[in-house]
Amino acid sequence: MDVTLVLQGLLSGLLFGGVYSLMAVGLTLIFGVMRVVNFAHGDMMVWGMYLSYLLATRAGIDPYLSFVVSAAALFALGLLVQRGLVDRVIDAPHEMQILLMLGVALVLENLALVAFGPEPTRVRSPLGAATLWLGPVFVDLARLVTFVVAVLLTVALSLFLYRTDLGRTIRAAADNTYGALVIGIDVRRVYAVAFGVGAACVGAAGALVSSILPFQPPTGLSLSVTSFNIVIIGGMGSLLGAFIGGLLVSVAESLGAVFLKPSLKELVSFSLLIVILLFRPAGLFGKRTS
């Protein structure tokens, strides 16, 4: 086996892990707080991507700036979805929540189809094809930046959850809904904010990866599936889990492409998922519940 190839595969996988981590952060936040499985996750992210695409092509705004706009828009969407829909079925059986989010996903995907058409597209990265060569292997600068952003976002969210009053309130509501009610927390409001913040992360992530991942309206499904993979492996509700899980899945797929026929590489991540589900269902960094 070609050593350079293995090294390059490892490096590319690790850096691309930043993209995966960003994808998973919003999902893990929403699940961690509300135990709601957001099947519209990928489609929300696609909207974040399209918003940054619009701003890039129409107003020339770089995705590294416009992610703020995507985040704000998705925050509003998240708030709306939570208040208008999820809130009403929070106690409904599992399958109804799934159906609801599938409906939301279908609406979002096809609104994107109506609004932007079916062609795949991608935002041109301001970094272009810039690379940094370390001997025979190279570092893709756009991915390096995304990786750093993923670290920053994870840290910022952790600070928000652990160091601010609102964050602590959200965590309290997540840990113990009943207890939070008892001590006078308006759980509905907290949920709405949490869903909003989670959705804002999804939007920001969408914008930040829009120059790396190509997208079109049906892309949402595969984004959702990959994100679920990562979040389960890392641990539902854990920010660190989403980050490490992203790196792990990405490296696994990249090395899968090195050692197997690359069209089989997703087998590696799905197998990893199954192993984790069976032997450590709370994920690598999730809280174990009895």
Binding site: A92, L100, L102, G103, L106, V107, L111
Partner: peptide, 16 residues
């Protein structure tokens, strides 16, 4: 895609 939007709205309506 309009018909799939309608279909999605229907699913949401059923849940609600």
């Amino acid at each position: 895609g309009a018909h799939l939007i309608a279909y999605g709205v229907l699913l949401i309506g059923v849940v609600l």
